[in-house]
Design a binder for these strands. Structure first.
Lengths: 188, 188
DNA sequence: CGGGCCATGTAAGCGGTTACATGATTTC
DNA sequence: GAAATCATGTAACCGCTTACATGGCCCG
């Protein structure tokens, strides 16, 4: 399981509460790993019980108190060990591809709206990533030079950008194919 | 769950046994959806019990008998219903990205070999996809013109090819970044 | 005679999703 | 007064992974 490791990395970058982690998983870390708050709270508890994390109760004004987690020495050792062992290259799980192949046994034209919707979502994500890149790494307000951690965050973000661009181009290809099939189903 | 749907699509393309499905999930369908044989056998049983699939015992010579599954009318209806309802755009789950960000708290240079290994795997996959494209869709032995099902299979395969190309380019970017960090960690 | 292929399963465990639950403060 | 934000949880379910299990045929 890599959620543990993602939490360790995120807490090393900056200690925070379960709620804050959940928000990060909707943003930067979430670009390549998703998690809901329910899951995060449960894993945080377990990691704390295992001695991987330290907790500090932080009283707040006008807001509920929070528990700020930070990485303890064993947590850091665990992460280090994981970093040094090989992992399996990812395999895709792409529902939409299943749908596209399935469209051969249904009405291909009915998929157009769905594919367009996905294209819009990926367009939004790309815009969001590009704005983040400008803000944190390449814009006038960004630190120069970047330190190692920032360089690594940037290259990961570039991966997200490349993924979204590739996906958008592919969805355009899919749409063109669907239109071709709808335009001339029997004729060549 | 989309495994059910992936199985329906695969069996509509061609009826087959659990074993054969498992092999397909290592190949064409597996380009965008993975599944192990254990999982497939269990789901096949459930789908048969639910009346989505029909089974036929096929005696064989020199080989164990097999059960050939095909899609029954309710299965086809289920697939059709799924095709007409919207699905969530995928979110990435990329362990390697977690590792890369984690490298900021360890030795970035230690990641080089791991990234190179991933790059090699994706290079192999790309070569494999390109060979399949030539064999089934663009080569001299391929049917012309392609029917709708083949066109859709081809556009999905083009997605896999685009994904692998993008990933390889990104891993090169990651390697360049790691080398830069190793070459001049304190100096700008 | 070892290894790989064909063929089908059972069992345990756990990571992740979904639904449910609470409650104060701030903002429109 | 409604909705969003901050903040933390419990409970049930289920899909998926991993390990274990069997057994004949073919090829080198």
């Amino acid at each position: 399981m890599a959620l543990e490791h993602a939490i360790l990395v995120s807490l090393l970058e900056k200690p925070g509460s379960g709620y804050e982690l959940a928000r990060r998983f909707e943003r930067s870390i979430g670009y390549f790993w998703t998690a809901t708050h329910q899951q995060i709270y449960r894993v945080l508890k377990r990691m704390e019980a295992d001695g991987l994390l330290a907790v500090r109760e932080v009283p707040q004004q006008g807001r509920p108190d929070k528990k700020e987690y930070s990485v303890a020495a064993p947590g850091r050792a665990l992460l280090s060990a994981w970093l040094h062992e090989p992992i399996e290259p990812e395999s895709l799980r792409h529902d939409l591809a299943v749908k596209i192949r399935g469209a051969a046994f249904d009405d291909p034209a009915a998929l157009v709206r769905e594919v367009e919707r996905h294209r819009a979502v990926h367009g939004d994500r790309l815009a969001h990533y590009l704005a983040g890149e400008l803000r944190d790494f390449t814009g006038p307000g960004a630190p120069t030079p970047l330190d190692a951690g920032q360089e690594l965050q940037h290259v990961v973000l570039r991966g997200g950008i490349a993924y979204e661009r590739m996906t958008i181009a592919w969805l355009d290809d899919v749409l063109a194919t669907l239109h071709r099939l709808a335009g001339a189903p029997p004729a060549g």
